[in-house]
């Protein structure tokens, strides 16, 4: 045996690496390699008709700056994120407070709130497609009964994106509620009693005690909501296909179109790098900045 292997410290290090190896192999093969590959690929133009790919340097990235559709998708995505994230988190927290308040029939309520989450995305989109349908959809029937003028919800540039936001909030809020509910049930009831004895109103107790104690959950949910906002694509296939006139197109949907409809995979790779950049920024911001403000038990 070589002398190095007789050293227990060396052996411990080797053991540690051996134990990490399987997980490391998977993450390298399925996450790191594709990511690096995409990065490299974004500098190439696909060869047509079997010709080899051609190195174009930063040309794709230059084109990004001129691409109007990309700019539209990016702005849409930012609007989508700033709509869905606060709305779904606020709604989730409110619903969790409600179902934790000890009302009669609260288990039914919990179930109702959670159902949208367990439904498949496409099914959800189909349900909402019916709500939004012009003339005989649910919304239009209600508006019709009230004598209001007809609106083509998904077919108008001004309403298409808000409609997509509503569906995403409806689907995510129930899921996030479960996390808030679990966190709420971790708060000992004696805290509420102590606050009550000290003369704190219900509102004060929620504002100064409950919501701060929910901060770790909020951070977790915020990260998930952000990822969801940039990962959103399924509903678009059913609801709007990004239209009309790209009014509801989001980054990932645009990437899909570029890569798999127009088969411009090089440009698609460049777009993907931009998306990755946004997600990285978001997570740095959340963990780096907010983490310091969160109280962990």
């Amino acid at each position: 045996m070589p002398p190095a292997f007789r050293n227990p410290a060396t052996m411990r290090t080797i053991h540690a690496w051996l134990l990490l190896l399987p997980a490391l192999a998977f993450i390298a093969a399925f996450t790191h390699y594709p990511a690096v590959n995409t990065f490299i690929h974004s500098f190439f133009l696909d060869g047509r008709g079997g010709a080899p790919a051609q190195f174009v340097g930063l040309e794709h990235y230059q084109y990004l700056l001129e691409d109007e559709v990309f700019r539209k998708a990016l702005v849409n995505n930012l609007l989508f994120a700033s709509g869905t994230i606060p709305l779904s988190i606020g709604l989730a927290m409110t619903m969790a407070f409600l179902v934790n308040a000890g009302l009669a029939g609260q288990s039914v309520l919990r179930l109702c709130y959670f159902v949208p989450t367990v439904l498949p995305m496409i099914a959800v989109a189909n349900i909402w497609l019916f709500f939004y349908t012009p003339e005989y959809g649910l919304l239009e029937q209600i508006r019709g009964a009230l004598g209001l003028a007809g609106v083509n919800w998904l077919g108008s540039e001004s309403t298409a994106l808000p409609c997509v936001i509503a569906v995403a909030v409806w689907k995510d809020a129930g899921f996030f509620m479960i996390f808030y509910l679990a966190a709420l049930q971790q708060i000992p009831p004696s805290l509420a009693e102590a606050a009550m004895l000290e003369g704190a109103s219900r509102l004060y107790y929620y504002r100064r005690v409950v919501i701060p104690l929910l901060m770790p959950t909020t951070l977790f949910v915020l990260v998930n909501a952000t990822i969801n906002a940039f990962r959103m694509v399924d509903h678009l296939f059913v609801l709007t296909q990004g239209g009309p006139n790209n009014a509801s197109s989001l980054l990932l949907y645009y990437i899909y179109e570029v890569s798999f409809k127009y088969w411009d995979t090089g440009y698609g790779a460049a777009l993907t790098m931009v998306l990755l950049g946004f997600l990285a920024l978001a997570s740095i911001g959340q963990f780096g900045f907010l983490d310091r403000k969160v109280h962990y038990r």
């Binding site: 805290l191 009693e193 102590a194 004895l197 005690v209 701060p212 901060m215 109280h295």
Partner: peptide
């Protein structure tokens, strides 16, 4: 009145 709880009921944050 003031009260001291068995679990102390201190606000952890």
């Amino acid at each position: 009145l003031a009260m001291v709880f068995q679990s102390y009921a201190l606000f952890p944050h």
